[in-house]
């Protein structure tokens, strides 16, 4: 719960969190080392100085660290935990649904653990979707289209094999598809970031919600265009939001474009924990006001009502979270974690 300086309670759903193991013991090869190092570079590049972690803690942090950073020191009420396998890079995977669910089971009211699958696995992917639904009752999945798998260096949401998986998701009621839009590795000569496959998938699967993490940045214009066309496309603020600290005017321009094109109902807060912790992000976001000239130019505003939607109400709607029921459940289940 975030309490505003005026004393208002804001329900926070953190749409993008991780519980990973990127430690050297778990790294399978140089790619695993470079992957978590790249995350660490994001962490050090965009965090306020007083929020920086030691590299070894960043590589592998405890469940208690996570509970503390998100819910005790941090303002999150509910955290959506995304699963990312990367089994070509990490012996036990980077953060699998098994590992995430194990971490989440101590405070089940606090977590929504999403699964993941790789359509290139064919029949096995379909079986795995069944397994995740039956074992963990997942409500959503995280898709990582840039993931390597043997000789393949990436896939697209509108590949036929992916469509078979989404058909099954729809049938089983797994309705939220978070899509990480990052660099796709091949074909190597293409513009490296592309969100157009979301357009096809969102059109063909109207009953699924498509949450584009990082708002497709650095292809914000493409993302905005798709979000205007498709009523079931949402933007996750992870990675865009930390700019609020280092380059606030730039963040103002990004959020203004999102408000103008996608609208206040379609934007979701996400800390991308443990790359960033939610407390400073939410505090700065609440205190943030659009510069007058940008407001005028785009004809949008970032009012407290809109901030409240972005911080929690929008995600609560996608995941059928009954906020009052949640609050009552939290009261019955206080935290008890090891002292630092």
């Amino acid at each position: 719960m975030f309490i505003t300086p005026e004393g208002k309670e804001i329900f926070v759903v953190d749409g993008h969190t991780h519980f990973w193991d990127g430690s050297p013991e778990n790294q399978r090869n140089i790619h695993g080392k470079q992957f978590v190092e790249c995350f660490y570079a994001y962490h050090t590049a965009l965090s306020p100085r007083e929020q920086l972690w030691e590299k070894s803690k960043f590589e592998k942090y405890s469940a208690d660290d996570l509970y503390r950073d998100l819910f005790i020191d941090g303002p999150d009420d509910v955290a959506i935990v995304q699963s990312t396998y990367l089994k070509d890079f990490y012996k036990n995977g980077f953060n699998t649904v098994e590992r995430n669910s194990e971490m989440a089971k101590r405070y089940p009211e606090r977590f929504i653990v999403n699964g993941s699958f790789d359509p290139r696995d064919g029949q096995k992917a379909l079986e795995y979707i069944h397994f995740m639904k039956e074992t963990y009752d997942i409500k959503g999945v995280k898709m990582y289209t840039a993931e390597w798998n043997g000789a393949s260096k990436g896939w697209r949401l509108n590949d036929p094999a992916a469509y078979r998986c989404f058909e099954l998701c729809e049938k089983l009621g797994i309705k939220n598809v978070h899509v990480h839009k990052g660099p796709t590795i091949i074909p190597l000569n293409k513009d490296a970031f592309d969100v157009h496959d979301v357009d096809y998938a969102a059109t063909d699967f109207q009953n699924l919600n498509w949450i584009v993490e990082h708002c497709g940045l650095p292809r914000l214009d493409d993302f905005c265009w798709i979000a205007v066309q498709e009523t079931n496309v949402y933007g996750g603020l992870a990675v865009a939001l930390p700019f609020i600290h280092s380059r606030p005017r730039y963040f103002a321009e990004v959020i203004s474009e999102l408000l103008f094109w996608a609208g206040p109902e379609k934007i979701l807060f996400g800390s991308d924990y443990a790359i960033w912790t939610p407390r400073w992000l939410v505090e700065k976001f609440w205190a943030f006001e659009l510069p007058e000239d940008i407001k005028q130019e785009r004809g949008v505003d970032l009012t407290p009502e809109i901030k409240e939607k972005i911080l929690g109400l929008n995600a609560a709607r996608l995941y059928d979270i009954d906020i009052e029921a949640k609050k009552a459940a939290f009261a019955r289940s206080p935290f008890s974690i090891a002292a630092e």
């Binding site: 994001y42 292809r219 214009d221 280092s246 321009e253």
Partner: peptide, 18 residues
């Protein structure tokens, strides 16, 4: 044009930081 710049600035800021 602003949309083009916002994307390029994102890359630039990120690349500089990283």
């Amino acid at each position: 044009l602003r949309g083009v710049r916002i994307n390029m600035e994102f890359n630039g800021a990120l690349c500089r930081g990283l």
